[in-house]
Write a protein that binds this DNA or RNA. Structure first.
Lengths: 169, 169
DNA sequence: TCTTTTATGTCAGTGTTGTTGACTTTCCAA
DNA sequence: TTGGAAAGTCAACAACACTGACATAAAAGA
């Protein structure tokens, strides 16, 4: 139980031992901290947080997206998102336009300043991702992506794939 | 810029494309949500949060560890950790003993109930990790671990490796 | 047209988790 | 014996999530 899965004593599935799984869990924890460290520093200077980063990221990803769309992507309540968006609009990082076909909708865009911030944030994050990818090599990257994909909830995986395909506005 | 790294137009490094990097970033975001979803549900029933989970996890990992040790591992302030520990001790999930050589230290242990909760939490998390690992296969897992390792800050990587080697009390 | 549903916004209250700053107690070690 | 490290605590604050209730505008359907 300390060292092996209960399933079998002598199997070949070393990568499925309890110890391996526990290490995977801890690796995710420490890696995610590294993953968010650089953007967090940049955001802190402006008094913004991770929630703002996420909103900015997905608006850049899908310019003209709606509030409801963003709500589904981020998986938070509208009250929570609204607080974040209000701040971003107030700081003139995000601009809104009324929907063309449906005038209830607010279509979300990044301003010039918002785009600049998004670039700074994603550059920092991509720099680290690139370094990690380069050090680990293409096959490791393929494996990394495979495992991450399997770790998502099915609903999130659909969302992720839709974004990857379309850029999905 | 939409599709390729600026570095070269015709290189073979498809996995270092801006689009690939951006997808990696989003995959991390969605996967981490999946990664924490099951424990979050269990914790919510008791009115506990992720911070309590992290403390419980690392106390289980290194029984008899000190507060200062935990502080360094978790990377939060002592005020923040203290609030979390106070709750866990009050709920009798964590017990403390005075240090043997240094009587200022509080050595941290999980109670029976704490151990039971830890098992429930890690079982849920390992179940998902195991499913992901199994679906992705051993080579993907090796790659996954390689990339995660590269994504950590150097200081965190040292911490992680010390934990992986020793169980490190 | 009238009604219902949808998209969005907003107010109030609450809770977790993090922060800084200030201060105290305990106690090891020089 | 004194300096400093380990730990605890109080207060204040902020980010970010939640629930619940209510408001408004516009689309959609009867």
């Amino acid at each position: 139980m300390q060292d092996r899965t209960p399933s079998g004593a002598g199997d070949m599935l070393l990568y499925l031992t309890d110890e391996q799984l526990r290490q995977g869990i801890e690796a995710m924890f420490f890696a995610y901290r590294g993953f968010t460290a650089d953007p967090d520093r940049l955001l802190a200077r402006r008094g913004l947080g991770r929630a703002h980063h996420r909103a900015i990221h997905f608006i850049q990803r899908s310019p003209g997206t709606t509030v409801g769309n963003l709500l589904a992507t981020l998986g938070v309540t509208k009250q929570s998102l609204n607080r974040v968006l209000r701040r971003l609009i107030n700081d003139e990082l995000v601009a809104t336009r009324t929907g063309n076909t449906d005038r209830r909708q607010r279509l979300l865009y990044l301003s010039e300043e918002g785009l600049a911030l998004e670039r700074a944030l994603s550059e920092a994050q991509k720099r680290r991702m690139r370094a990690a990818y380069r050090a680990a090599g293409p096959e490791a990257v393929a494996g990394f992506r495979l495992v991450l994909d399997q770790m998502m909830d099915p609903a999130q995986r659909r969302l992720f794939r839709a974004l990857s395909r379309g850029g999905g506005a």
